[in-house]
Simulated assay, not measured.
Amino acid sequence: MKTMLIKGERTPLFDKDLLQVINVSESESEIDDSDNLIRIGVQNEDGKIYRIIGANDVLEFTHIIKDLHANHWPVENRDPDSRRSLHSVVLPPEEIQMKALGIDPEDPGSAA
């Protein structure tokens, strides 16, 4: 597995939690276009892809997705149209999405 941050995109505070879930201690500096990886994008609270996770094969991809689901990370599957397309996109956990919208996760009826 490889992972890298997208230059110019804001890295959210939950990134360290994500890395812990997928069992990665630090980020690779670059995923090369020639790398034959199954790519997973990760969105920040602004809806922008800020990190790419590259799985080496279908088994590793499945393991990553299962770990994310087990830890309540929403994942949207995609239909990639090229080798470099994203196969899935990981969204921030619901609690983080609610906070970004100004909603208290403990009181969903409240909105800022």
Rank of each mutant, 00 (worst) to 15 (best):
residue 106 E to H: 12
residue 102 G to F: 08
residue 6 I to A: 12
residue 98 M to I: 06
residue 99 K to F: 00
residue 84 R to E: 07
residue 7 K to E: 09
residue 33 D to I: 14
residue 42 V to S: 06
residue 42 V to G: 04
residue 60 E to T: 04
residue 80 P to M: 09
residue 7 K to G: 11
residue 82 S to W: 01
residue 11 T to W: 01
residue 59 L to A: 14
residue 23 N to M: 00
residue 22 I to F: 04
residue 83 R to S: 13
residue 37 L to C: 10
residue 93 P to G: 08
residue 45 E to P: 04
residue 111 A to Q: 11
residue 66 K to T: 07
residue 77 N to G: 10
residue 47 G to P: 00
residue 110 S to E: 09
residue 24 V to W: 00
residue 36 N to R: 13
residue 41 G to E: 02
residue 42 V to L: 10
residue 98 M to H: 11
residue 78 R to H: 06
residue 17 D to H: 08
residue 95 E to Y: 09
residue 96 I to V: 13
residue 30 E to Q: 10
residue 110 S to D: 10
residue 51 R to D: 02
residue 104 D to M: 10
residue 63 H to I: 00
residue 88 S to V: 03
residue 38 I to F: 07
residue 27 S to L: 08
residue 110 S to R: 10
residue 109 G to R: 12
residue 67 D to W: 08
residue 16 K to M: 13
residue 23 N to C: 06
residue 26 E to S: 15
residue 36 N to Q: 14
residue 109 G to M: 13
residue 25 S to R: 11
residue 73 W to D: 01
residue 53 I to T: 02
residue 40 I to E: 03
residue 35 D to I: 11
residue 112 A to W: 08
residue 3 T to R: 10
residue 22 I to A: 03
residue 78 R to M: 14
residue 20 Q to D: 14
residue 39 R to F: 05
residue 86 L to N: 05
residue 82 S to Q: 04
residue 91 L to C: 13
residue 24 V to T: 11
residue 92 P to D: 00
residue 108 P to R: 00
residue 75 V to R: 02
residue 56 N to L: 15
residue 97 Q to F: 06
